[in-house]
Design a protein around this nucleic acid. Structure first.
Lengths: 246, 246
DNA sequence: CGATGACTTGACTGCTGTCAACGTGCGTGG
DNA sequence: CCACGCACGTTGACAGCAGTCAAGTCATCG
């Protein structure tokens, strides 16, 4: 269980999420330039990657593992505002005032790449294709989050859970993993906080979906037994039809 | 009541929201360049400004009046995703796939400025200060919307209404109008759709806030009688303390 | 003057949060 | 190695908030 890294010189060129991440579309030469500016670290479960209020110094990418971002409520309670999977850009919250709005924590043993925000910007002015990819990723992350928020907004508990699961399914399959079998690295309470309900209600929704034969739920392991029926039940079938068609 | 325009050559330099809008920080010379590329139109209540699915050709700014943006739900029902006040950038939905996600309609007689997206982009490459202002506005619009969504997410009906009212109050005061007296140009059902509740519930929340002595509600006219108490009741007092301090 | 849309109010129902008890697995320390 | 504490998940009982349905008022517009 040696947690620290004796990994043989991590490089973007070898990364399995490079096609989703910054390197996409970069020449070998440009890639080397980017590579030299990226730092790596391993975070254990519950480790903080950045904290709310911190100045926005780095952008992060999840290399493997998963991360949650939470903001502190008025009381001590915290609310989850996002989960991040491998290849996803982390740290864009608070692009506005250049301070992180939330606190990012690893949900499991997680490998993180970080690059200085300033260095990335200056590198972007030199490498147009990197600039394009950064813009694409940023607008994708921001847009996707907004879209999800919207489809979560005005729905019943079960539909929110379904939308959440379909969203995860889509993101895992985009990463080359199964769209119908995946593991929830977050707790029920995390999901509840994210979806605006209670842990108990999450449990009950899972039970209901299992009893309907749509899902197999075994602790953290989810298997989607009937994807079409699930999409049907999301209440926004046409959206997902479109998404999955791509 | 002549609705169509005999307005004496509208220009950005004379506009009362120029300090919130694209012209901000531009030299007289640059302003002229921008001005020549902006078109104006007047929309009546319920007029469509752009429609969901339309290719993203223009960016719009509300010059006076107000606008709502709605997306069609699975059934014929529509859901409001945003309201826009004078000086606010309109049409950023669907920056992703270059198609508008929602349909924008005027809530009252509204004056709209439009500028071709392509022309704005090319102009930005020539005028750095315009480019900076565009970036600032975009990140502000996107960030603000996200922030609002978050503060609306996990709250009871009354709190959501309060947050909504405080948000409007802030935006009106930023535009030089009263922070405590304003008119709701949208219907109760519009508010309800936006906040994820029903029209009846909006009414009841208004009644409750009136009975508590925090609000004076007279049809569409709102008067905030006790701003501090309202902020207190929003459940995110510290956020608004910060906002109003600016 | 009637039609229509917007708003209000009331009665009822049901969903979902709250509280509580309990089970289970994991890690820590004796 | 075992015992314990703790985090997490599940289940049940119950209450309250908010959605639904329905009726009715009011202002506006043709």
């Amino acid at each position: 269980m040696s947690p620290s890294g004796e990994e043989p010189t991590i490089s973007c060129g070898d990364c399995h999420v490079r096609e989703l991440c910054l390197p996409r579309g970069l020449s070998q030469e440009d890639l080397t330039q980017l590579d030299s500016r990226v730092c790596h670290r391993i975070a254990q479960r519950r480790d903080v990657i950045y904290r709310a209020g911190d100045p926005l110094r780095f952008l992060y990418v999840v290399r493997s593992g998963s991360v949650k971002v939470a903001i502190g409520d008025a009381a001590g309670t915290e609310q989850i505002i996002g989960f991040y999977l491998p290849g996803e850009l982390l740290g864009l919250d608070g692009l506005n005032d250049h301070r992180h709005r939330g606190t990012a924590r690893a949900l499991e043993t997680t490998s993180i790449c970080e690059i200085s925000f300033d260095e990335l910007e200056s590198l972007c002015t030199k490498l147009p294709s990197l600039n394009r990819q950064v813009e694409r990723l940023m607008s994708k992350e921001l847009g996707a989050e907004q879209e999800l928020m919207l489809s979560l907004a005005r729905r019943g508990v079960e539909q929110r859970i379904v939308v959440f699961l379909l969203n995860l399914s889509k993101r895992w399959s985009q990463r080359g993993f199964s769209a119908t079998r995946f593991t929830l690295t977050m707790t029920r309470d995390d999901i509840a906080s994210y979806l605006g309900m209670t842990g108990e209600t999450v449990t009950r929704a899972f039970v209901a979906l299992r009893n309907s034969g749509l899902l197999k739920v075994e602790k953290k392991n989810i298997q989607i037994l009937d994807l079409d029926a699930l999409i049907e039940r999301s209440g926004s079938a046409e959206i997902y039809a479109r998404v999955f068609a791509r």
